[in-house]
Design a protein around this nucleic acid. Structure first.
Lengths: 252, 252
DNA sequence: AGGCGCAGTTGATCCAGGTCAGGAACCGAC
DNA sequence: GTCGGTTCCTGACCTGGATCAACTGCGCCT
């Protein structure tokens, strides 16, 4: 709905998840495990590097792809933050997910062959673009890569099922914060001090709550001493406490 | 929670989606497209047949796999109906999906490497069991099969996102019925006269509603002349009308 | 400085759907 | 047949979270 006005890149933001080198590639990239773990040689790694296209910077509010665009590629986030948003015929938006550095956007477009959502950057962001026909052809020659793609899809499926569960507002918010922290930690960032680069409205929409509810729950969690929150800067003070609240959303 | 007592197979139920022949294979199987569409020869088809294992019958209430079982295989439904159910630590159940003949169960286990849910038959059912290591090895040699697996995963992802959307109870029920009809039609069954083999409680749980709400909405839809419903036998009287109610859930 | 606009918070009210409580219909068991 | 169990439906009430309405604080413009 909103047409976010461009805003200039913020030098403080956006730690870059790789060293920028073409050869060493993103060390935390979603696909790195496919090669490294399986012990692939330089030649295979080079295949991956040839088909990847480094794109960016995108400034906050720019679109990577839009609903109904034909599906051509998947995008690994190199730096920055992206949300995917589906819009129904009445114009209601639904945030489907937030994607951190090292994560992959666009997998839900494989089946419909068109992107079923918009992908919008929330901060200045850089991507690796993988042509899907090319990467799936390569996957046929690299079992580790095929396996990795299966795993990414299956993981995304698990995330969607969590979101689909019916959980109380507080559980949802606690799970959201815990999950963000863990995903950041998995990418080598701090898992306890983090910046919520998305607006409260986006968070609320993603959690299928009203923005007011999210706001109230944040203050409640703060009053309980579980988190410290100032604007968009969040610190998780009591990870186990928060995890306990989120327990039903996350464990099964 | 409930331990459903076994019940004897009902000869009326469970139209079988294939001719039972080992060689001709399930004509409506989720994987048939992978071979036929891509023009594969008999040799490749035979590879698929060798790795598949026909299992069943399972009677209503039996488990195909359970939460935490190590992930070994995916299962294509040959006949009958299955639900998948996740249980959280407090014992709350969440139905994740219903699977009709021709559809595939177990894809959400790839990433965690353990099944994240139980799969329970709701009527007498037969399956094709595909060892996952074997089918993904074959997929590396059969791009059409690899593509098909990607598509299945991506499709399932889309379904989960629909379920995760926040929609009014009536929209959810209308979408559920419409979707069931379309999926049955896709498998060659009637898309307008169908049997809800799952209980109202299961439907409600799947839609994240109370059973009472589902019941009330069914009667409302009947009063509006959109459906005819007697027990578990449903007829969709006004498909476009129902689709209109479901519009926001399904279109994007 | 002042003023505008947007993001976020807080309080007051409302309502969709959940919960609770009966009751009817339909089994299968004996 | 009757009994007990189960599923489904319906009515009466309750509540979590949505909605509506201020209000605050901040960044940006002129």
């Amino acid at each position: 709905m909103q047409t976010p006005r461009p805003q200039r890149p913020d030098p403080r933001a956006n730690p870059i998840a790789d060293d920028g080198s073409e050869v060493r590639f993103c060390s935390t990239c979603a696909f790195s495990g496919a090669c490294v773990a399986a012990g692939y040689d330089k030649a295979h790694l080079r295949d991956l590097h040839v088909l990847v296209e480094h794109i960016g910077p995108f400034r906050a509010g720019e679109h990577i792809f839009r609903t109904h665009d034909p599906f051509r590629a998947i995008y690994a986030v190199r730096a920055g933050l992206v949300k995917t948003v589906a819009v129904d015929p009445e114009g209601n938006e639904q945030v489907l997910g937030f994607y951190l550095p090292g994560e992959v956007v666009g997998l839900n477009a494989i089946y419909p062959e068109h992107y079923p959502c918009d992908a919008v950057t929330l901060e200045t962001a850089y991507f690796c673009r993988f042509s899907f026909p090319a990467i799936s052809a390569l996957a046929a020659r690299m079992p580790g890569l095929q396996q990795q793609l299966f795993r990414l899809l299956s993981k995304e499926l698990g995330m969607a099922s969590l979101l689909a569960g019916d959980h109380a507002a507080e559980e949802r918010v606690a799970a959201f914060v815990t999950d963000l922290g863990e995903r950041l930690a998995a990418q080598g960032f701090s898992g306890t001090r983090l910046r919520l680069s998305m607006s409260r409205v986006d968070i609320a929409n993603y959690l299928r709550l009203a923005a007011e509810t999210v706001s109230r729950i944040f203050t409640r969690l703060r009053d309980q001493g579980l988190i410290a929150l100032e604007g968009r800067d969040l610190e998780i003070l009591d990870p186990p406490g928060l995890r306990a609240l989120a327990r039903n959303v996350r464990e099964r």
